[in-house]
Amino acid sequence: MANSLFEEKLYSNEFLVTTEIGPPKGADISEMVHHIDLLKDKVDAINITDHQSSVMRFPSLGGCLLVKEHGGEPILQMTCRDRNRLALQADLLLAYSRGIVNVLCLTGDSVDAGDHDEAKPVFDLDSVQLLKMIRIMESGTDIAGKELKGAPNFCTGASVHPEADFIEPQLIKFEKKVSAGAQFFQTQGIFDLGSLRRFMQYASQFNVKILAGIIVLASARMARYMNDNVPGIIVAQAIIDELASAGKGKGLQKGIEVAARLIRTIKEENLCHGVHVMAVGNEGIVPDILEAAELVGVPS
């Protein structure tokens, strides 16, 4: 029995579309609410990021509650950077109690990357252990083996990096995540469909759903900046060149085109089970992308 609408769709062979919203740095949530309203009916689920890039923000769990309040389908991004196993379990219990059941389990960026680089990095668990912990909680105990009064039930996801320059260890970790109970994967940004094809050739043996991560780039400069500064991201040179070819002020438009083209191809060629659109700081343009990718109205 499906836990959530998203989980139900996960096993429906539909082409899935998810996107993500970064919560505000501050107590003013009006913009986030605006984005939720804008996107909730255009995608299958909305991820709320968890202090993305280790920059302190409004919490993911709070964002997910808003999504829920506004009738959307939230995916709770949960990193291990800031909470030890007690806090993680507590947050999971809270989430479940309020109907938030889709959880994307991440290790989290290192503290050094963000705006609180003097903070204590926790990493009591890693992503694999977090997945495993959820399965244990679902079985009725906490991870110390103590019985829970009422066990939760989640739809768990994780991330994978098909474009990593050293792929083998990433694949080992992917398998460990699958074994630990991940049901779906949202990949890191895909810029080269070849790597996605190779990855899918391998990943199709597992009974998990793969959503290709699509990052919308606003300019060549942004792409280069991400290459230099954002963990794990490797934007292909061909895409940087294409962005650079755009006229002044047309960069974002070009970025939308690129993203839409990638999405269209993925869908047409049935490369994987869906896409996860990441419009970093530009959540408002996600509908444009979906429109350009001829995906509007799919969830209806």
Partner: peptide
């Protein structure tokens, strides 16, 4: 590993180096 994780590399590794320090090898690699 800056995160001290036990089940393999995180996805932040690039060019065999750590996401937190480009001079430091990724321990998991």
């Amino acid at each position: 590993c800056i995160k001290g994780i036990l089940n393999g590399p995180c996805a932040g590794t690039k060019n065999g180096k750590c996401e937190a320090n480009k001079d430091m090898d990724c321990a998991w690699l």
